[in-house]
Structures are given as C-alpha cells and as structure tokens.
C-alpha cells in the first residue's frame, strides 16, 4: 500500500470532520495536560515526603553498658538493610545537646548525668513504617538497650497520605484518559460515517479491512500528535512562567527523575497511544459493519 495514499486519506478525514477532530484534540490535550500536571505535582509531593521520611530518626537509648557491648549493638544495628548510618551519642554529647536545646533552663540542672547514651539511626527513604516497627521490636530485645523511640505517627501519616494521593491520582488519571479515548472513538466514528460511501467502494473493489483502516489510524495519530504538542506547550508555560510568576515560593518545580524529556516524552507517547487506541477501536468496530449493497 502506498504511504502517500494513507497520508492523503488520513489528512482528508481530518479535514472532513474538522469540528469533531478539534473536539477530540481539545479532550486529548486536557487529558494529557492533567495527567502531566498530576505527574509533576505528584513527583514533587513524593520528593517532599521522601525528604520528610529521611529526617525521621530512630533513637536507641542504651543502659549503662561497657564499650564492647556498645560496639556489638552498633554492629547489629548496621546489619539492618534499612539502616544507612548509625551515629553514637555519648552521655557527654547528650548533656551538651540538652544544654543547647534547653538553654538557661538546662543550665539550672546541676547534674545531667542521668541522660543515657544512645544511637541515632538514619534510615533509607523507602523504609516503611511496618519495616521500622519490626526492627524496633527486635532492637528493644537487644541486651543493653533500654528504649527505642521514633516518630511512628508522623511516618504513618505520611505513608497514608501518599498512598491516598497515589490511588486518587491513578483513579482520576484513568477516568480522564478513558473519557478522552471515548471522544476520539466518537470522532473517528463520525469520520467513518462521513466516508461510508468511499468505504463501500473500497470493499467493493476488494480492499481489506486493514487497508481501509490505516488512514483512520493515521487520523487518530495526527490528533494525538497535535494534542501532545499543545499539552506540552501549556505544561511548559504553566511551570516555567505562570507558577514562578504568581506563586514564586514554589519556584520551578523539578522535572520527574530530574530531566525534562521523561515527562515530555511520556506525555507525547500517552497522547499518541490514546489517539491510536481510540481510532483503532472505532475503525475495527464500524468498518466491518459497513455493508456494500
């Protein structure tokens, strides 16, 4: 089959149902833009949560034990995969910290020797509350450990919110994408209806359904490509001009995975797939239903 034929027919179909095509381009643009916005905001939200999680420390308070036992506890703590660093806080250091934090009030206490030595554990950002709880339960059983403290409530709240936002994002995203695909489907259905006599003729002379279908698929791809270009343009304008101007404290939010081309490429790909999928769905359904006689 000639490529010229596919391009010519694909473009002519686009022209024939201009209004419907514009409708589906607008729908695709909105869908892809919204998904892009959700991805960018979601990624930045995720980064904030990860930073907050990194700041969560687990403090392991020790009994009065000898240095050999203290070192063995350090070695045991480092054997946990979620522990990235163990920082020893001696009794003297604890006293110093106390005095810094409580100032004059701390100075009034004559003897701060009751403050225990401890280990501060830094954890990997992907450590979840369940893993930390399990580790804490085990560490509490270590000989020489008095108490283990960490901000479980904050961590659980962060995890719950992140999960909720992820689920809501996926749900809304899928709904938006489905709506856009239905609109593309409808546009291609109208194009097929407008070209039903030509389709009849094609079938009459022995064209295969695949041959007849290809221009419609190209039409869907054209819609997807135009929508991708507009959505990416709007996305760039919003994040690089509008938000920094009106909400300067946000600055320019970072691109997912640090580079612009991942999200931009993803949006282009998504738009093309939706355009192709919607048109393929309609073409498969309606071309085979078009009778000759």
């Amino acid at each position: 089959m000639s490529l010229t034929y596919v391009i010519k027919e694909g473009v002519s179909g686009f022209r024939r149902t201009r209004l419907a095509s514009i409708t589906s381009i607008v729908a695709l643009t909105i869908a892809v833009l919204l998904v892009g916005l959700m991805a960018r905001f979601g990624y930045n939200g995720y980064e904030v949560v990860q930073t907050m999680k990194e700041s969560i420390e687990v403090e392991v308070f020790l009994l009065d034990i000898d240095s050999g036992r203290t070192d063995r506890i350090a070695a045991d703590l480092q054997s946990y995969p979620i522990v990235t660093e163990t920082e020893y806080v001696s009794k003297d250091k604890a006293e110093e910290i106390f005095r810094e934090e409580f100032g004059a009030e701390g100075e009034s206490l004559a003897d701060l020797n009751f403050l225990p030595a401890s280990y501060r554990l830094h954890l990997t950002p992907d450590a979840n509350a369940k893993e930390i709880r399990e580790m804490v339960a085990e560490v509490e059983q270590f000989q020489g450990v008095d108490e283990v403290v960490f901000n479980q409530e904050l961590l659980e709240t962060l995890e719950e919110r992140l999960e909720l936002l992820t689920m809501a994002g996926i749900g809304i995203g899928l709904f938006i994408l489905f709506t856009a695909i239905v609109l593309v489907f409808n546009t291609i259905r109208l194009t097929i209806y407008a070209k039903r006599n030509i389709i009849r003729t094609m079938k009459l002379v022995g064209a295969t359904n695949g041959f007849i279908r290809r221009p419609f698929l190209l039409e869907g791809l054209i819609q997807g490509a135009i929508a991708a270009a507009i959505a990416n343009g709007l996305h760039w304008l919003l994040f690089h001009l509008v938000i920094p101007y009106y909400i300067p404290q946000f600055g320019v939010l970072s691109w997912p995975m640090g580079e612009w081309y991942y999200l931009t490429g993803g949006m282009v790909l998504l738009s093309l797939i939706m355009g192709l999928w919607g048109s393929r769905w309609a073409a498969r359904k309606f071309i085979s239903q078009t009778a000759i006689g």
Partner: peptide, 28 residues
C-alpha cells in the same frame, strides 16, 4: 477482486479523477 461489480448508483470516489478511480481497484 475476482468479481467485477457494477451498481446503479455508480459509487465512484468523488475526490479522485477518472484515472485514479480505476487505478484504485488495482492499488488495493
């Protein structure tokens, strides 16, 4: 393709010239 079919209502492709209309049966 092994049949020739002729209808009352012609069914020519209106946006192609005569040559292209006939050629279409062979292009497919």
């Amino acid at each position: 393709r092994s049949l020739g079919i002729v209808f009352q209502d012609f069914q020519l492709l209106p946006d192609r010239n005569i040559y292209d209309n006939v050629a279409f049966a062979l292009e497919v």
